[in-house]
Amino acid sequence: MYEQFKAKAEGVSAEVHRFTTSADALAFLVDFLKEEGVADQDGQYCVVAAGPFVDGIDHEQLAAIPGVFFDVTRQQAAGARVGISQVDWALADIGTLVQDATAIDKRLVSTLPFIHVAMIATSGLRPDMTAWLTDANPNDAGYLAMITGPSRTADIERVLTIGVHGPARLVICFVDELGGTN
């Protein structure tokens, strides 16, 4: 199922990675943020939404990078280069992420920065929408977001533009040991 998701998501320009442990995922994030030039200046910082992955890691490793903020405001998210949030499920047949974005910090971090890094427990992977609906009750969420690749739009002349209404890059990180779907 993971390989199917990866193929579908990469088909719409998402970047997909898989890690066995949270420590491996954290090491990837630290390197990724450094490579992206995250810094404590406008347009270069990173905002991180609360969630099981973030709550379970050593914040010091991320906080050691200048420009990584754990307190998310609308203004910060709008000026961020990178936003990191946890999503709840992934639909393999269409390469789509599903996020309970009722918490405003998740919504801001996944929609406003230039790059969205979506952390997900591998156990949140479902074959399709039907399987997801047997496990989840959409009525339990105040705001559900379906994320398929980076933001894209096309005008009447079919000129495709990436990143107009949201992140221009989507980086998806599956973590095997994360467990749970929340």
Score class of each variant (00 low, 15 high):
Ala154Leu: 00
Ala121Leu: 04
Leu108Pro: 07
Met119Trp: 06
Pro138Ile: 05
Ile94Met: 13
Trp89Gly: 00
Phe5Ala: 06
Val98Glu: 03
Ser123Gly: 13
Gln44His: 12
Glu15Ser: 12
Ser85Ile: 01
Ala27Lys: 13
Ala145His: 03
Val54Phe: 02
Leu133Arg: 15
Tyr2Glu: 09
Gln76Ile: 00
Asp58Trp: 04
Thr111Ser: 15
Asp31His: 15
Pro127Lys: 13
Val72Cys: 07
Thr111Arg: 04
Gly95Ala: 02
Leu26Ser: 06
Pro113Ala: 10
Ala78Arg: 15
Ala39Gly: 02
Glu60Trp: 00
Leu26His: 03
Pro138Lys: 01
Ala90Asn: 01
Gly56Ala: 14
Ala14Tyr: 04
Ser123Lys: 08
His116Trp: 09
Asp71Ala: 13
Glu10Ser: 06
Thr96Pro: 01
Arg169Asn: 05
Gly180Cys: 05
Met1Asn: 09
Val171Lys: 05
Pro113Asn: 08
Gly124Asn: 04
Trp132Ile: 01
Leu133Asp: 02
Ala63Thr: 08
Cys46Lys: 03
Ala49Lys: 12
Ser22Met: 13
Gln75Thr: 14
Gly163Ala: 01
Leu33Ile: 08
Met146Arg: 09
His59Gln: 08
Ile94Arg: 11
Ala121Asn: 06
Val38Leu: 11
Glu177Gly: 03
Leu133Gln: 13
Tyr2Pro: 04
Glu3Lys: 15
Lys106Cys: 02
Asp155Thr: 05
Ala141Tyr: 10
Asp155Glu: 03
Ala118His: 08
Asp140Trp: 11
Gln99Gly: 11
Thr73Ser: 14
Ala118Ile: 02
Thr20Val: 09
Glu177His: 06
His116Phe: 10
Gln76Glu: 11
Asn182Phe: 04
Ala14Asp: 02
Pro113His: 10
Pro150Phe: 08
Gln44Met: 07
Leu178Val: 11
Gly11Cys: 05
Asp40Pro: 02
Ile104His: 02
Trp132His: 14
Ala80Phe: 10
Thr161Gln: 05
Asn139Thr: 12
Thr130Lys: 12
Leu144Ala: 02
Tyr45Phe: 14
Asp42Gln: 11
Ser123Cys: 03
Gln75Arg: 12
Ala23Val: 14
Gly180Trp: 11
Glu157Ile: 00
Ala63Phe: 03
Asn139Phe: 09
Ala23Ile: 08
Asp105Cys: 06
Trp89Gln: 04
Asn137Tyr: 00
Thr96Trp: 01
Glu60Gln: 13
Glu36Asp: 10
Gly67Met: 10
Cys173His: 04
Glu15Leu: 09
Ser123Asp: 13
Ala154Ile: 00
Asp88Gln: 15
Phe70Ala: 08
Asp105Leu: 00
Ala49Asn: 13
Thr21Asn: 06
Ala25Glu: 11
Asp105Thr: 14
Thr181Ser: 13
